[in-house]
Write a protein that binds this DNA or RNA. Structure first.
Lengths: 221, 221
DNA sequence: TCACTAATGTACGAACTAGTACGTTAGCTA
DNA sequence: TAGCTAACGTACTAGTTCGTACATTAGTGA
């Protein structure tokens, strides 16, 4: 099996810095996500790559920096997805719902990312703070939300007095919790929040919640 | 300083199994919450108690069981708080808002609990699964929500078709995320979700969100 | 008051783990 | 094609960490 893996390259090392780095990052993402920062084993990461532990230190410097690199790549994925957001041609209500659904989909599709963020929060975001790349850039989604909110408020559709960051927090909290806390929630309440047949239910629930909040009739209160 | 700690007990060990156990649990809660399961150090926990590592193994059996005991006690605190819920004399809208606010307050007041739950989710709730105490009992809050929802729906106030578990998830997600993800959220978006002067803002936002969702005019959709 | 047990303390070890010193080689370029 | 360097591998170590064997004592009941 091991010899079939690669296409007829019987002997000798192949040198490919980019591939080696990427492979280390792939495996490290899995291992950190599986066991947390302290629980992850550098030896285990190395063993699961085609290279050795030496290369981890050669390319990344240490366990701490490797985790930072893993985080940086994970965040870059969501940032790229957000840059593809194309919802501003929709009316504000539909645009926000679509945005919420895309956030929902992205969280569901990337449970490893959710776990890494949970782990980073246990460590009080110290790796983000230490990273030049992560500290500076914001979220493309935030700008999109800002513009939709403005349009919706001008047209009188949106009555709520929220800013983009808080609305982003509201949407993220539901999407994040559903994935991050699925195990304890499932164990305690006997309900699987990520069961495939409940997916549409929760996706709709999220959209309904956000739209209801934004368009609620405040004259009643 | 060390001699002033205890009231005039100059020499000899004082034996108090209950106090020793409780002290170990207190320190272990802090240490696990600070560093995660793998990151927590049994020696460190022992050093910060008035007893020795030996006692951890004597009373709890090992690191794994100690963490389970810490979790069990942390969950028992929230369960006790939920048993004191007294909102059913209010009208359904006020009752749900009050319940949401109490959940909000409890999460804010117990960041260690939030961290422990995050950590337990990284470990896929394996300790909850292994615990007889935690696996069986549900949440008292759930029964309260169930009854309020029924009253609200009968009276026509609540139009949303949610059950108690999903509403609980919605409320918890906002409260939990605000505390659990405050570090990454703060680092990435420059906003402190637990800033004291924003407390009322987010508390109100949560209530507004839940009520808007429950009472939204569905004939418009 | 004597003996017995629950509770406690000390000292230690086996296994693990992050990190490194040192040696090797593929592949490019002059 | 010779030589140079980035890329890679091996073997090892110093320090840590969970867990335990063994010794001791406080308090209680006969």
């Amino acid at each position: 099996m091991t010899s079939v893996e690669e296409p007829a390259r019987p002997a000798g090392r192949i040198r490919d810095a980019a591939r080696t780095k990427a492979e280390i990052l792939d495996v490290a993402t899995q291992e950190f996500s599986r066991a947390g920062f302290a629980g992850a084993r550098v030896d285990e990461i190395a063993a699961r790559t085609r290279t050795t532990k030496r290369m981890i230190y050669y390319y990344f410097g240490g366990k701490e920096q490797l985790f930072t690199a893993v985080l940086e790549r994970a965040y870059s994925v969501i940032r790229m997805a957000e840059q593809e957001l194309d919802v501003e041609h929709l009316d504000p209500v539909a645009a926000i719902r679509r945005l919420a659904e895309l956030t929902f989909d992205h969280h569901e599709a990337h449970p490893d990312f959710i776990r890494l963020v949970s782990i980073e929060n246990i460590h009080e975001a110290e790796h983000i703070a230490a990273s030049e790349e992560l500290g500076t850039i914001g979220s493309p989604a935030l700008e999109v939300i800002r513009r939709i909110l403005e349009t919706g408020r001008k047209s009188g559709l949106f009555t709520a007095d929220v800013d983009a960051v808080d609305l982003h927090a509201m949407i993220s909290s539901f999407c994040f919790f559903r994935v991050s806390n699925r195990h304890t929630f499932g164990a305690l309440f006997g309900r699987d929040l990520v069961a495939p047949d409940q997916r549409e239910h929760y996706r709709t629930m999220l959209g309904d919640m956000v739209i209801a909040y934004l368009t609620a009739d405040r004259t009643q209160d």
